[in-house]
Design a protein around this nucleic acid. Structure first.
Length: 351
DNA sequence: AAATCCTCCAACCGCCGAACC
DNA sequence: AGGTTCGGCGGTTGGAGGATT
């Protein structure tokens, strides 16, 4: 189409964001919502292109972002979903509350991909690099089924991802409105109106989980907000989140629980008929593949990289006991990955 | 202590599809 | 119908910082 890059304009800044820029962006979005990203930088007084602002917001400043190490549960989810969806990071991200697609993508590229490769698993196909294990008819059929399911699931997740995005908009508009005593902006009000009925269930998957991991306390969303390049903690730069009134930026406890209740009901009823079919297919696939797959994963027990697949290495290898523990740990780890893949939709929060 | 290598991740780039005119 | 704008996505890069030599 020949559209010039949005950051080519003279005078627009590129590169790492400064705390001052972050503060401006946050303050503006808190006040007005993002509205048109294209127009935002001028209105917010930033020498950035809209795209850069959007990226900074969605990947870093957004209040509902969790930072830090990925849990094993999250790793398993990523591996499982990547097997189904491939590099559809945004779709995968919809199932990892508070994680951004960029973060998941980075984590995959820097950690998980290498780990799978070391184990002899092709990180693209999620199959053993040797074709030997897929030589039987049953396994070939399983692979075909998996591919078929991946396509189906991919389409569904894309739609789901769209709803989640809209739902987040709606949540923010709701919460902004809740916090501010004036009406929301036109853009936010519009999204909210459209989304009230159709997306509540999906928001909840994330919100309710976040409430759970925080032991019932609604996270203000800024507790983990740290950046090596642009830090917004009050101690370092004096921006003072609390002084900006940020703790209730995400919402009050009542607002969250309200959404949770309404969402949980709809979540339970979601996709019940298709999920039954999927459950059967997944079980078939799983039983056919599991033996060879697990064995392959575990045969590499001498590989030191295995030690970080389930836990950090303690350097205590070499004796028989440690080796057995090591084997068991990894067996449990990879079994749990397969359990996730094979688990029925009804008992997985993901399906 | 200095140089080099490696890892990680924030940010950029280019492309695509939807919406709009 | 065709062109343009915009938001979003996935791939890639570059620099900071840690590890190693």
């Amino acid at each position: 189409m020949g559209r010039s890059p949005c950051c080519d304009k003279v005078g627009l800044k590129k590169g790492p964001w400064t705390p001052e820029e972050d503060q401006k962006l946050l303050a503006y979005i808190e006040e007005h919502g993002h509205g048109s990203w294209r127009a935002l930088p001028v209105k917010a007084g930033l020498q950035r292109c809209g795209k850069s602002c959007r990226l900074r917001w969605t990947n870093y400043l957004r209040p509902d972002i969790k930072r830090g190490k990925f849990s094993m549960q999250e790793e398993q989810t990523i591996i499982q979903l990547h097997a189904l969806l491939g590099n559809r990071w945004s779709a995968i991200a919809t199932h990892l509350p508070k994680r951004t697609d960029n973060e998941i993508k980075n984590y995959w590229n820097t950690h998980l991909k290498k780990r799978l490769a070391k184990l002899g698993i092709d990180p693209i196909t999620h199959k053993p690099k040797s074709d030997a294990l897929l030589s039987t008819d049953a396994q070939s059929k399983s692979a075909a089924n998996l591919s078929h399911m991946a396509q189906w699931e991919s389409a569904r997740l894309e739609a789901e991802a769209r709803l989640v995005r809209e739902s987040k908009l709606r949540s923010h508009s709701h919460l902004f409105q809740h916090r501010l005593t004036r009406p929301p902006t036109a853009a936010f009000a519009s999204s909210a109106g459209q989304l009230v009925n159709k997306t509540a269930w999906n928001t909840t998957a994330g919100w309710s989980k976040s409430s759970e991991v925080n032991n019932g306390v609604v996270n203000n969303g800024f507790g983990d907000l740290e950046s090596p390049k642009s830090t917004l903690t009050s101690s370092e730069n004096g921006v003072g989140l609390s002084s900006m009134g940020m703790p209730d930026f995400v919402g009050t406890a009542s607002a969250s629980s309200e959404i949770k209740q309404e969402g949980e009901q709809e979540w339970k009823g979601f996709g019940s008929s298709t999920n039954l079919a999927m459950e059967n297919e997944f079980n078939d696939i799983g039983y056919a593949m599991e033996d060879g797959f697990i064995n392959l994963l575990l045969n590499d027990s001498t590989d030191p990289s295995l030690s970080d697949s389930g836990k950090e290495s303690d350097g205590n290898s070499g004796d028989g006991t440690a080796s057995d523990d090591h084997y068991e740990d990894n067996k449990n780890y990879w079994n749990s990955v397969l359990d996730l893949v094979n688990s029925s939709p009804s008992d997985s929060p993901m399906f």
